[in-house]
């Protein structure tokens, strides 16, 4: 029989020492958490590792849950951040930097990378670039630009002034724009192709 306790009751029970509560909470939401881990990392093994990291972290930090969001939202964010951490480490390992300076590539024969990218590929590239941001900028961008919270709400969640959130978003977006500048061609009907001098046509 399903445990009738709410998510927040289960988390509170875990903090109070109930040895089964946290696993029940995870069991309840495992498919959703798995889905986000898989979609964020794009690889089942990485997703499993990230999910395990995230859930052990949540297990240990349950007492820090402040109740200003749903338990599922809290878990979700921990999973996303663990996945992004994994991606960052994977990027370092692979030593294959994102094509962040396409304009400097010599020769007009260089194809626009966007030409070869479907929506899913773009999502993965953007996610990987997001993973490279400093944690504070990443958190702010996730809340404001991805989840759609207002700056005011994000500031409350991050426990910092609104100006700080704006600044972090600004800095993070600027970094992303530099590394992902080639995406500006994505929705353009007149794609910009880098020429031999690195200028745009």
């Amino acid at each position: 029989m399903a445990d009738p306790r709410s998510d927040s009751d289960l988390l509170a029970a875990h903090v109070a020492g109930d040895p089964l509560a946290f696993e029940e909470l995870v069991r309840r939401h495992r498919d959703r958490l798995w889905a986000v881990a898989l979609r964020t990392t794009g690889d089942p093994e990485e997703a499993a590792d990230a999910l395990q990291d995230a859930l052990i972290s949540a297990f240990r930090r349950a007492h820090q849950f402040r109740g200003d969001s749903a338990v599922t939202t809290w878990l979700h964010r921990i999973v996303v951040n663990a996945c992004l951490d994994r991606l960052r480490r994977r990027n370092v390992r692979s030593a294959q930097p994102l094509p962040d300076d396409v304009d400097a590539l010599p020769g007009a024969v260089v194809a626009d990378p966007v030409d070869h990218m479907g929506r899913r590929e773009v999502q993965l590239v953007v996610t990987e670039a997001l993973a490279e941001l400093p944690e504070e900028q990443r958190e702010a961008i996730l809340l404001v630009d991805v989840e759609g919270w207002s700056v005011e709400e994000a500031a409350r969640m991050l426990d910092c002034p609104e100006g700080t959130v704006k600044s972090r978003c600004h800095r993070g977006r600027a970094k992303l724009a530099k590394s992902l500048g080639y995406l500006r061609n994505l929705d353009s009907s007149d794609p910009v192709v880098p020429d031999a001098e690195g200028g745009d046509h």
């Binding site: 979609r39 996730l142 989840e147």
Partner: peptide
Amino acid sequence: AVQRALGDLAFLRP
């Protein structure tokens, strides 16, 4: 473009 792309990361939303 980056802001558009970020907005397309729906799967990262709770």
